[in-house]
Amino acid sequence: MFERFSPAARDSVLQAQVVARELRQPMIGSEHVLLGVLWQDSGPAREALVAAGLDYPTARERLAQLVGDELDPQALASLGIDLDEIRSRVERTFGEGALDGPDRRPEPRGHIPFSKGAKKALELSLREAINLRSGGIDAEHVLLGVLGDVGSLAHRLLESFAVDPIRLRNDLRGRLRASA
């Protein structure tokens, strides 16, 4: 399927791997692919994302916040575990900031696999290209595929910026029709 990807679409997927690696994620998710499209210099997909109020550095930082905390304080509290109390005890014993060291997750090496959601988004990008009678898969089709994966972390990321994925999808499709 990747042989049908344009250079911009390939670059988006390669950047998705870079983001996943930097965030020490074990898999490339649709949220990483979304950032890979936003990373592009130009094109209707990036223009639609920017028009919706997103920019790469801010979106990347927000994603880092969304995926960064593996512990759910509310879930642990329901089990009688108080993270604030644990932090306080550790800092009394080992010094202030003892838990604030570098990320303990190792950086993934080699090939990072695609998550089920990312695979679905890329498959949807092929369908979008076929439906739009395109000769290949471009970054716009990749973004449409990501937007078609309802309930994904990519959708949560967009919604954290008050971006409606359906409205963004319609805007992008309108831009594609206008440029055809």
Rank of each mutant, 00 (worst) to 15 (best):
M1L: 11
E3V: 10
E3I: 09
A8V: 09
A9H: 00
A9W: 00
R10E: 07
D11C: 09
S12G: 06
V13A: 00
V13Q: 05
L14K: 14
Q17C: 10
V18M: 12
V18R: 13
E22D: 13
E22Q: 15
R24L: 04
R24Y: 11
Q25G: 11
P26Y: 12
P26R: 14
P26M: 09
P26L: 10
E31S: 07
H32D: 11
L35Q: 03
G36K: 05
W39P: 13
D41Y: 11
S42L: 09
G43Q: 01
A45K: 04
A45C: 06
R46G: 04
A48D: 08
L49P: 12
A51W: 04
G53R: 10
L54Y: 07
D55E: 12
A59K: 06
E61F: 06
E61V: 09
V67P: 00
G68W: 09
L71R: 15
L71M: 12
Q74I: 08
Q74K: 13
L76E: 05
L76I: 00
G80S: 06
I81H: 08
L83I: 10
D84E: 13
E85G: 10
R87L: 01
S88M: 08
S88R: 15
R92I: 10
R92N: 13
G95E: 09
E96G: 11
P102M: 02
R104E: 15
R104K: 13
R105A: 09
P106C: 04
P106L: 09
G110N: 01
G110K: 02
I112E: 02
A118F: 08
K119S: 03
A121N: 06
E123G: 14
L124C: 11
L132Y: 08
L132I: 04
L132P: 14
S134C: 11
S134V: 07
I137R: 05
I137W: 05
A139S: 15
A139Y: 08
L144P: 06
L144V: 00
G145L: 03
V146E: 05
V146D: 01
L147H: 10
G148Y: 03
D149K: 12
D149N: 14
V150L: 12
S152A: 01
S152T: 04
S152P: 15
H155T: 02
H155D: 02
H155L: 04
L157V: 09
A162R: 13
D164K: 01
I166A: 13
R169Q: 12
R169P: 04
R169S: 11
L172C: 00
L172V: 01
R173H: 06
R173P: 04
G174C: 07
G174P: 05
R177S: 12
R177G: 08
A178M: 10
S179A: 15
S179R: 15
A180K: 13
